[in-house]
Write a protein that binds this DNA or RNA. Sequence first.
RNA 1: GCGGAUGUGGCGGAAUUGGUAGACGCGCUGGUCUUAGGAACCAGUGCCAAUGGCGUGGGGGUUCAAGUCCCUUCAUCCGCACCA
Length: 799
Amino acid sequence: MSYNFKAVEKKWQDTWDKEGTFNASYDYSNEKKWYGLVEFPYPSGQGLHVGHPRPYTALDIVARKKRLEGYNVLFPMGFDAFGLPAENYAIKNHVHPKIITKQNVDHFREQLKSLGFSFDWSREVNTTDPDYYKWTQWIFIQLYKKGLAYKTTMPINFCTGCKVGLANEEVVNGVCERCGSEVVQKEKSQWMLRITKYAQRLIDDLKDIDFLEKIKTQQINWIGRSEGAEVKFKITDSDKELLVYTTRPDTLFGATYMVVAPEHSIIKELKSKITNIEEVEEYKRKASLKSDFERSELNKEKTGVEIKGIKAINPVNGKEIPIWISDYVLVSYGTGAIMSVPAHDTRDYEFAKKFGLDIIPVLEGGDISKEAFTEDGTHINSDFLNGLNKEDAIEKITNWLEEKKIGERKVNYKLRDWVFSRQRYWGEPIPMVYCEECGWTPIPEEELPLKLPEVENFEPGENGESPLAKQTDWINTTCPHCGKPAKRETDTMPQWAGSSWYYLRYMDPHNDKALASKEALEYWSPVDWYNGGMEHTTLHLLYSRFWHKFLYDIGVVPTKEPYQKRTSHGMILGSNGEKMSKSKGNVINPDDIVEEFGADTFRVYEMFMGPFDQVANWSMESVRGCFKFLDRVWNLQQFLVDGDTYTQETEKMMHSAIKKVSSDIEEMKYNTSVSTFMTMVNEFYKLKRINKAEFKTFLILLNPFAPHITEELFEVCGFDGPISSNKWPEYDEAKTISDEVTLPIQFNGKLKGTISIIKDESEDSVKEKVHKAIDSKLEGKTVVKEIYVKNRIYNIVVK
RNA sequence: GCGGAUGUGGCGGAAUUGGUAGACGCGCUGGUCUUAGGAACCAGUGCCAAUGGCGUGGGGGUUCAAGUCCCUUCAUCCGCACCA
């Protein structure tokens, strides 16, 4: 009797779809709320990847369990549908991205439904829907009004393939994260978001939320806070000063030269004094041709040119020191200029060695003839700092600098402002208008959404301009401020815009007065549990925390943080341990698995394949094992008998299983939950019987993992269904422990045998039993000591 | 280089958090049933010169007892990478 998963799964999916109430969440219910969130997919043309269902199944399991526990659950799904692939497809095939996006979304939705996820589809959102992006644009205008959105001309990362500007976060190993093309620097006027203003809060508030430690660490490292001082160096024969940032002001006495970034303004400012200006300009020119990647790739050999004709004056000892230009100093960090202390900084040391510059040690310890000494030590050659350690010296010199007004304390962050413009069509139009008289002005909020105009040709412009730049009808408008002719912004927002706040929209997805009502936000905030990929830690996750904090500041949302808990899943690789890709021919299509084995098998397998947070290789054999398991579950029917519990042993098994599965689900140890189910099934097969109450409990426990087969069995066995109207079973701790204990006996920690004892049996009685069982093996040995750990182990120390 | 993680049978992985290492699944071996089986069921399966010994990447240590704690070392994977 093999079970017909196709018919059964279709039947239950139709039921869930029709009812509409099964997965629905109720606003402002009196029940405790639980909001579980998984990252909404980009609906690509390839359809669902086997990687998507792993986190979806995991949180679906939690959501289903929470419902059975009586929570009012919000577990929504939507589509992050703006993005380059749809646009590139449009360029190639002359189909509007809107059309291809709709097709893809429909396909994705169908695939997701075929896996039996309990999403509340009545709350589906789509970032490309004007009713949705109206609010994305609205948030942008608020950011603009508060001075957090600004336009500036700056060198940006420009992808030569996508012909689009990229945020730092989107450049991976010098190439475009999305298409792999080379990224070059290009001067462009760009909209920027001042995420740096939130840097400190983005670090500080992590302490109040439950994110995996590695996620917190990664965000903190990305933000890259450092404490130090800014110090002014006078320049000879000039009223100009060179400002540097250093985390080691205590090493000022060892500063033997300065280095400025190629783009530093001092070169232009003191051009007339520089005697080798041609050489310096040539170095600048060469550096500007290199991408950031090339610059860092060449980091083995440092390059540079001395700027002749000017010198800097070390403020602590009045010494004149040379100024160099080198691309190992970055214009975008600190002040774009550094003081070099070759004795105590590895990079400076390398540079000084190469160009024969002075190396003066100011801390004791280490051997500067060999390498830079970067550890703590006692200061020497440092006048009033002599004898102090690093920490004390930093404190003393910083105070001194502040007193003398030649420097001050300063905190720096690696985090840069967010490049928010994309020169593409398929994104949210930036709702700004440029007027010759009034400058940039946001469009009036009542005109939102500013819809994308219909265009024929999606090719980007020659100069990397947005396709919108060709839409003269759309561009030409009037200034909302003075009414004179003005032009619209033709750049669009990056893909990260719509996903920065989508979790809020799910709370109240059809609201046309606000991004969500106050009541809905109050009731559902924050997201209780958000699971997503590690690759989004420094992109989406950081961006959305930033937007959320901003919305909190302007009184739109009630919590400081969007997500109370964040976990992460491991990637699914091909059976050969490599990333799935068409070229490697190791791609698994979820549809094929569902077709051959059914959704329940697919779900159970993805949970069983390994620890949820670690990478896992796909294994077709293991899929079959899970299929076989469900088949055995189905055939348990044949052993069904009336009654609550069969024996004390089965009772113990049931209570232990409830305990184990309940905690496993909360701890994301789904793989051991599945093995618990398998062990139980094996046991019932051995007994060739299963009591009704036991089967019922078993089915409820298994339901979140394999919802279709369990509902069907519930019905077939005449239990009071559906399972979704039942309660999650409870266990009795006392019944998870049996009265009989198998006690291991060891000699020197090595197992020699076991005996059976009664739980909590007296030590004397245990000892007697142990010796009766084991004395023959003690011949010729001397017993030194005997250790009994109650109900646990009996260890005899012998010689 | 910095940061994070992971090393356990032929394979994927368990291990009550210091107390019987290898649960569960795959694979393999044997059996039952069968015209047949890439089906089902039952039994076995860490390794070895097997009444014993050895075993959680390697080496050392703490302990009655170590996969688990400490020191050290190697390997692999993932982030970030001249951040002053």
